[in-house]
C-alpha cells in the first residue's frame, strides 16, 4: 500500500507540475494572472484529438501541430487583447477569463459537448513494486523533467533568459537597459502557452477531452502556484507535489471522501499561506525569482 501511495504521488505531482510551470512563468515575468492558461491546455488537447482521430495524422505530427497552433493562438490573443491593457491587472483577469470562455464555447460549437479522448502515445503499464503505472503517466513524468530542464536552461543559460529575468525583476529598468519589454513579454507568453499545450497533448490521453476540461485544472493550478509562491517555478514544482501528496492521502485514507481531495488540497494551501503569506518560495520584495 505504501509503495502504491508513493508512486501515485510522484505520477500525479508530475502531471500537475507540468501544468503549473507555464502559469507561474507568465506571472513571474509579466505579473499577469492568465486565467486562460488552462484553456490553452484544453485547445491543445482538442488539437491532438482532431489531428490524430479526425484528420488521421500520426501522433508526432499531431503533437507538433497542436502545440504550434495553440501557441500561435495564445500569442495572437495576447497581442490583440492583452498587451495594451497588461498594466491593469483586474482588466487582464476579466479579459483572460472571457477568452477562456470564448474558447470553451467555440469547442462546444465545433465538437459538441461529447466526451472525447486523445489517443494514448504508448499503451500499457509498468508494474513498479507491485503497483501499476501506465506508460503514459511515466511519459508525462519524463516530459516534466525534460521541460523543466529546458526552461531552466533557457532562463539561466541564454541571452533571452537574461532578458526575461531582467524584465521579471524590473520591467522599467530592463526597458532603460535596451530590452524590448513588449517583445520579451510576447515571447514569455508564447513559452507559457507552449508549456500549457505540451501539458494538453501529454495529459489529454490520460484524461477526458471536453469543453469544460479547463475549469478544474485552473483551480488546481492556481492553488499550486499560490502555494509555491507566485512566480516561482521551483515553488510551482514543489507545490505540485505537495498538492498531489494531499490529494493522494485523502483518497487512500478516506476513500468515501475522495471527492474532497481538491478541497483538502486548497485547505493545505490556506494553511501554508497563513504561516507563510508569500507562499513557499514567493518573494515579497522585487528580488531574484528564479
Amino acid at each position: 500500500m505504501f509503495q502504491a501511495f508513493v508512486i501515485q504521488v510522484l505520477v500525479t505531482g508530475g502531471v500537475y507540475a507540468l501544468l503549473a510551470v507555464g502559469f507561474s512563468l507568465i506571472f513571474g515575468v509579466a505579473r499577469m494572472i492568465n486565467l486562460a492558461h488552462t484553456a490553452f491546455f484544453m485547445l491543445a488537447a482538442y488539437g491532438m484529438f482532431f489531428c490524430s482521430l479526425q484528420l488521421g495524422l500520426d501522433p508526432i505530427s499531431s503533437i507538433i501541430l497542436s502545440i504550434v497552433v495553440t501557441t500561435l493562438i495564445a500569442v495572437a490573443s495576447y497581442k490583440v487583447f492583452i498587451d495594451r491593457i497588461r498594466e491593469h491587472q483586474v482588466t487582464v483577469l476579466l479579459i483572460t477569463i472571457a477568452l477562456a470562455m470564448v474558447f470553451q464555447e467555440l469547442m462546444l460549437l465545433a465538437f459538441g459537448a461529447h466526451f472525447r479522448a486523445a489517443p494514448t502515445l504508448i499503451s500499457g503499464f509498468w508494474e513498479i513494486f507491485g503497483v501499476r503505472v501506465t506508460y503514459q503517466q511515466l511519459l508525462s513524468l519524463g516530459i516534466v523533467l525534460v521541460v523543466l530542464i529546458c526552461v531552466w536552461a533557457i532562463l539561466l543559460r541564454t541571452k533571452l533568459g537574461i532578458a526575461i529575468r531582467a524584465t521579471a525583476q524590473d520591467a522599467e529598468i530592463a526597458n532603460l537597459m535596451g530590452i524590448n519589454v513588449s517583445r520579451i513579454l510576447l515571447i514569455t507568453m508564447g513559452i507559457a502557452a507552449a508549456l500549457a499545450a505540451i501539458s494538453g497533448v501529454v495529459v489529454a490521453p490520460l484524461w477526458v477531452v471536453y469543453p469544460y476540461m479547463w475549469l478544474s485544472p485552473l483551480v488546481m493550478v492556481m492553488a499550486i502556484v499560490v502555494l509555491g509562491g507566485l512566480g516561482s517555478i521551483k515553488g510551482s514544482v514543489i507545490g505540485a507535489f505537495i498538492i498531489a501528496l494531499v490529494e493522494t492521502l485523502v483518497v487512500f485514507l478516506v476513500p468515501a471522501g475522495a471527492f474532497l481531495k481538491l478541497a483538502f488540497a486548497l485547505l493545505a494551501m490556506v494553511i501554508i499561506l497563513v504561516v507563510r503569506p508569500e507562499g513557499l518560495f514567493g518573494v515579497i520584495f522585487e528580488e531574484e525569482r528564479l
Binding site: 484524461w207 493522494t248 487512500f252 471527492f259
Partner: peptide, 13 residues
C-alpha cells in the same frame, strides 16, 4: 470510493 462526477483522474482511487 466517491470521486467527483467531473474528476479527470481516478488512478489514485
Amino acid at each position: 470510493w466517491r470521486p467527483s462526477d467531473t474528476a479527470t483522474d481516478v488512478t489514485a482511487e
